[in-house]
Computed example of a mutant assay.
Amino acid sequence: MKREVPLSLPDVGEREKEAVLSVLKSRWLSMGPVILDFEKKIADYIGVKYAVAVNSGTSGLHLIVRGLGLGEGDEVITTPFSFISSANCLLFERVRPVFADIDPQTLNIDVSQIKQKITSKTKAILPVHVFGHPADMTDILDIALKSGLNIIEDACEAIGARYNGKLAGSESDAAVFAFYPNKQITTGEGGVIVTNRKDLAGICRSMRNQGREAGAGWYEHSRLGYNYRMDEMSAALGCAQLARLSDILIKRETVAQRYTEKLRRLDGVSVPFVGPDVQVSWFVYVVRLDPEIDRDTVMRELTGRGIGCRAYFQPIHLQPFYRKAFGYKPGDFPVTEAAAVSTLALPFHNNLSEDEIDYVVTNLKEVLSKF
């Protein structure tokens, strides 16, 4: 019997509803005390001094790039296998993204390629923790230290992830987490910058609020800024979700383990790789299909059976705008391109039941048998 199994579902309960309702009953809907509470809770959780809540992960990345003073003529080394904002945030300030191909197992930036990409124009490294699996931050930190480079950590998919026991976002110049409804915790829309740098936190805090300094008048603007603020309702939802984060991560780990157990011996499928020194914060559950299998056909078949699924990601360098602007072509980053045509995200959320997992696995097996 056909069922509907959506790709993702937010996990919002009575605690979250009460928190948001409490804000709606207050005098503060924006720029109030709940934002400050959310920022403190995030900073304490990650173990950093400062957190700056914003209206999206993209906004957070943009503010860091601008806050570090990066601009035209500068270069930042990053990955072409990511959501497009991790590269677009550089172009907003006319900084050139310099791509390094990815590791075929983790799908994160291949650290061995970073050194050869460094030039006199390189100002930073921007790793992305793809799907919640931390990048090799130990080696990235070492390269950055020896080369005098900043690290901008795109941890938008990885709150709670750890490498060598250390939380993602805790050691770079600045990191960003995002809270779209399919993330581990959600604020509806929203994100947060975390950093130990007082100067950077202050600049980002000013720029998110139209360039106003703390304590300045409403029409006093010290620098170019933006309306990148998070509202109080979103922050309230975030506080309630953050209080449940440990349980949420356990739930997602359990769903991922069940998938892996059921898919491990399925011909034509490779389950997600997990490195030996990392703790994955499961954002999505993405399998790899063998090269002879047409991933797009599999997606159509699964969708027709009511199973939500999606390709993750399309190579940034092959997006039409990037090809036109920089002359990229197929073959430039072969590992990324091979991953892009073979990855398949299966339904994944906190409360996915064993019956739903079995339905997905059974139907995937039937579809793959046609190949």
Rank of each mutant, 00 (worst) to 15 (best):
L224Y: 11
I250C: 04
D247Q: 12
M233L: 11
I42V: 15
W282L: 04
M207S: 03
A240F: 10
I248S: 13
G268W: 12
R212V: 05
G327V: 05
S246F: 08
V367T: 13
G304T: 06
I77W: 10
Y219L: 07
K117S: 12
I125H: 06
P272N: 02
L141G: 04
A325G: 00
K41L: 08
I64D: 00
S369D: 15
S172A: 15
S59A: 14
S222E: 11
N150A: 15
I193N: 00
K146L: 11
Y180V: 13
G191S: 06
F81G: 05
D101T: 07
R162G: 02
A135V: 02
A51K: 01
P181V: 11
A144H: 06
D277W: 07
F83D: 13
L249M: 14
D332R: 13
G238F: 07
T336F: 12
R223Y: 04
V128N: 05
E171F: 03
R208N: 00
V192H: 04
R205A: 11
T343H: 14
Y328L: 12
V360C: 13
V255T: 14
S172C: 06
D332K: 12
E356L: 09
E253D: 14
S30R: 09
D294F: 06
L242N: 10
G304N: 11
Y219C: 02
K198W: 03
G60D: 00
P97R: 15
I140K: 00
H133Q: 06
I357N: 09
L63H: 00
S112N: 13
K49L: 09
N182L: 01
N363T: 14
L24F: 14
E153P: 02
E4P: 00
F371P: 04
K2N: 03
I64F: 01
I118R: 06
K41S: 08
M31Q: 10
F92K: 12
V286D: 13
T119M: 12
A144L: 07
L61M: 13
G275L: 10
E75F: 06
R323C: 14
P134V: 04
D277V: 05
L63I: 00
R94P: 05
D139K: 08
F38V: 07
P181G: 12
E18R: 14
R288T: 12
E253V: 01
V286T: 14
T195H: 04
G69I: 05
Y359N: 06
D74C: 11
Q116R: 15
D11R: 15
D267C: 04
R264K: 15
Y45T: 03
V5Q: 09
T336P: 11
G215C: 07
T79G: 09
N227Y: 10
R27H: 10
F283W: 07
G148N: 09
F81L: 13
A339T: 06
T78L: 04
V48G: 01
S170I: 02
T119C: 13
F81V: 05
S56W: 02
R208Q: 03
I42S: 02
Q116G: 10
I102E: 04
Y259P: 03
R258F: 07
G308V: 10
D296N: 10
S353H: 08
A201Y: 03
E18P: 02
I84K: 08
A201E: 02
L289M: 03
G308D: 12
G268K: 10
V52G: 01
A53I: 06
E75P: 03
V360T: 14
D199K: 05
T254Y: 09
V111C: 01
